[in-house]
Write a protein that binds this DNA or RNA. Structure first.
Lengths: 340, 340
DNA sequence: CTGAAAGCGCTAACAT
DNA sequence: ATGTTAGCGCTTTCAG
């Protein structure tokens, strides 16, 4: 129910000139009389003319739009990354269209198709938790549609991605716990096929080894990273014959859920059970005790992903695959420092 | 750098028929031979044909896109509302393009213009904190571009909106505090021109009155709702000659900041100072003590706003203004129940 | 039953 | 210095 906006045609007919003259005037074409340029510009300004992006898109075969697919937009981790993407996109005259997979493989596929049908100029994606089959990226790669993964990635040989060094970070966390007196360090992990799960487990095991601790299968629990799943995992750990004196959670959700369960059992953090994990600045300081954690530079991850994508969009060479590893920092707070 | 996608023309030339025939075949035009329909459909499927939305948009003068402007997307309150909008939009075949004003009047205006230039079919907006002048909505209203406000609203006579009953909710909170023993109830409010600020203050004063408490100007502090602003406000309140025994915060940010300050001063919540406010389910239970709070039905607010907008977009009548008031619930948790 | 033509808004090569 | 034409992908009269 919207009124039509002014077009070049409207301006042309009002001024009694041709559409191309108006088009040229607006871009200061060198061999146009200054008089007409001035007249056109004035009327365009008066009438609030802006080029119709649909017409431009059709002509130029590009939409200046980038599609973003994330597991959800409600989690601070993702919304902050989206913020970073938006920042760079906007600065470069691009719009972003966001859609969330709700961790579902089916929805991830649907969203991707929707975005492709919309003719986005490129895609930035974080894999859904359920996604174990990556063949839906075949056609995207084949069609040479610019694509960048972040955090949860796949096909890193063919597709650029932005990640953090999960192995190193997890190792650091584990060693940190050891230094603060923990000897039975448990890990609540994610689904086994996700790269972040695998890498963090690897770092966890490396850390244990470096500390001279032996890996105990009972202390490693996989979850679907939901509140409920993490609660079950925590309780399983706490009711072991030899329960852990420290838990390292794979992400925010797991940690908050674990924290609630530990408190509910009347155990003290960090004295009975130390707790650390991966989360963001904000949440780490809002909970009590404040959480020792690896902080993701989320906003910057988003910015970097957007930069990579924009480069790919603008370049006319074939894909140049890059893996960017962002710096993650361990920040020591209260949840890991045992009073002893 | 993307390859061109298949068009009707491609299919037509491959099949040796005209473009219009293909177009018709795809929509099962009644007087077309079933044979050709079948052939076209098969090839279209094989080649993954989907109509080009730019071409359609140009033709139909609509983009199936709705623009969303929020103060930020990182706050759970907004991201959850966006989720609700996305839900309804997607179900109706609409895309959403999100942009954040970062509470800036200037950016709000810019975003609105960008979105309008993109030719979105409608707009869903939450005002920036800085926005006190509403004339940039004049042209939008005049151009009959579908528009819906939520939470922070203006021009409610001319524009539909989705809100909660802030007066009632604030009144309830105040009475709740009184019932649990508070007698000096302070309120950390937002900028004075925002409707949510005004309404919550009104409810606060009504609540005080109903409890037989007199309004004390010292106990009402305005902030810009930032972490820092709220910290200053909290400290100002706590260092009063007669400090409050309860604080009611206007939103999440204010509450978390207040909570940190109160704890930092070594005061106990709720015994020394009770704390309540407006927040969401998730955060209320993650902090300690768990927060007694008015919970916004954020997802539903988003859904409702999207429904209103879609109705406006689809209707060809002039604007029908509606004010939808969503149900907000007071959930009693630990932060307000004094042991005495 | 199917094709040709016009037009949505715009640009760029091609006239004049 | 400016106008004409064609074409980006699609639908919809209008012809036949």
């Amino acid at each position: 129910m919207t009124k039509r906006r002014v077009s070049l045609k409207d301006i042309a007919s009002q001024l009694g000139v041709s559409v191309s003259t108006v088009s040229r005037a607006l871009k200061d074409h060198p061999d146009l009389s200054p008089a007409i340029i001035e007249k056109v510009k004035q009327l365009a300004a008066k009438w609030n003319y802006t080029p119709n992006p649909l017409a431009m898109g059709l002509l130029k075969q590009q939409t200046n739009t980038i599609g973003v697919v994330v597991p959800d937009i409600v989690t601070h981790f993702y919304s902050s990354i989206i913020s970073g993407i938006e920042d760079i996109a906007k600065a470069n005259g691009y719009y972003i269209v966001i859609s969330s997979s709700q961790e579902s493989y089916k929805k991830e596929k649907e969203n991707l198709n929707n975005l492709l049908n919309l003719r986005v100029d490129g895609l930035i994606v974080c894999l859904a938790q359920e996604t174990t089959d990556y063949t839906h990226y075949d056609s995207i790669i084949e069609a040479e549609i610019p694509l960048v993964f972040f955090d949860r990635v796949c096909r890193t040989e063919e597709v650029s991605s932005v990640v953090i060094d999960n192995v190193e970070a997890a190792k650091e966390l584990t060693i940190h716990l050891y230094k603060h007196g923990a000897r039975r360090i448990a890990h609540i992990a994610g689904p086994s096929f996700l790269n972040i799960t695998k890498e963090r487990i690897e770092g966890y095991r490396k850390g244990l080894q470096l500390c001279g601790l032996t890996f105990d299968q009972n202390l490693l629990v996989h979850t679907n990273m939901s509140i409920e799943g993490a609660a079950v995992a925590t309780n399983k750990l706490l009711s072991l014959k030899y329960p852990p004196d420290a838990i390292f959670g794979v992400n925010d959700t797991v940690i908050f859920s674990a924290m609630k369960e530990i408190k509910r059992k009347g155990l003290k953090i960090p004295d009975d059970v130390a707790l650390v994990g991966f989360t963001d600045e904000f949440h780490a300081t809002v909970v009590e005790p404040n959480l020792t954690a690896i902080t993701h530079p989320t906003f910057e991850i988003g910015q970097e992903a957007a930069r990579l994508l924009l480069n790919e969009i603008k370049s006319d060479k074939a894909r140049t695959v890059q893996q960017i590893s962002m710096q993650a920092k361990l920040i020591e707070r209260e949840s890991s420092v045992k009073l002893k």
